[in-house]
């Protein structure tokens, strides 16, 4: 990464922090209380953007994986890995916030009737296996390509799993809870958008920070090998 890109990082990080603060204020104070669910509905402004950000990271990881296979440029390997790493962190946060929401509104810590939550559990397991695969292969071009292939399987698995989980509802049990409340008002929608932008930016900053760190680490190791 060029130094000018690294120099923009503190600015971007500050922007992300500011937006996050604004999103929290909007979500907790400004947005009107949901008539149906009360205060617990406010976690929606954090939970759903986190989930969307996780999808974004998985998509980014798969895109970089595709570029690696296509162009054969080694730098895409690290970019794909870091994006998936961030995606897995956000995926874990989705599971945690989803579980808290389920506890608050349905009085259970886990429910199989929320398709999105089940999908995230499947994806979480899938991407954990990605790390297992990556760390048990010898470093090199082959590891880069195997990881890339697995990352591509991930984005294809997302729609197919979603379809399968929707179909499985029929025989596992019918939907009892739905999230289809009344339509969002303007303020609610604005809060949601701000929060979404904040989390996407946060994920992007984290992605860049981790990438810069990993690259520095690799450079340092190379230097040490040259010197010693």
């Amino acid at each position: 990464m060029s130094t000018s890109l690294i120099r923009t990082l503190p600015g971007l990080a500050a922007l992300a922090a500011g937006l996050m603060g604004l999103a929290i204020v909007l979500a907790l104070i400004v947005a009107p209380e949901d008539a149906d669910q009360g205060i617990s509905q406010r976690i929606f402004y954090i939970h759903v953007p986190i989930a969307l950000t996780a999808y974004f990271c998985f998509g980014l990881g798969a895109w970089k994986a595709l570029l690696l296979l296509w162009r054969g440029d080694e730098r895409y390997d690290l970019e794909s890995y870091v994006a998936i790493h961030q995606g897995t962190i956000f995926g874990a946060l989705t599971l945690i916030t989803g579980s808290i929401w389920a506890r608050a509104s349905w009085d259970v810590w886990w429910t199989w009737s929320s398709n999105q939550l089940v999908l995230f559990l499947v994806l979480f397991l899938f991407y954990c296996a990605y790390f297992m695969l990556r760390f048990s292969l010898e470093e090199g071009a082959r590891r880069a390509r195997s990881s890339a292939v697995y990352a591509l399987f991930g984005v294809v698995l997302i729609p197919i799993s979603f379809l399968a989980i929707r179909l499985a509802e029929d025989f596992i049990h019918p939907t009892v809870f739905t999230r289809e409340g009344p339509q969002m008002t303007g303020t609610m929608f604005a809060t949601f958008c701000v929060s979404w932008a904040a989390l996407t930016l946060l994920a992007y900053v984290l992605y860049r920070v981790e990438l810069a760190g990993k690259r520095l680490d690799a450079d340092l190791r190379e230097l040490r090998e040259v010197l010693l």
Partner: peptide
């Protein structure tokens, strides 16, 4: 993929099971 890794027997089920969930549903 698993065969060229260090932990091949352990790794294979971990790689395949999440991918097999739609098959089990079907």
């Amino acid at each position: 993929m698993a065969a060229s890794s260090r932990s091949r027997e352990v790794l294979l089920p971990l790689l395949v099971l999440p991918l097999a969930i739609p098959l089990i549903v079907g």
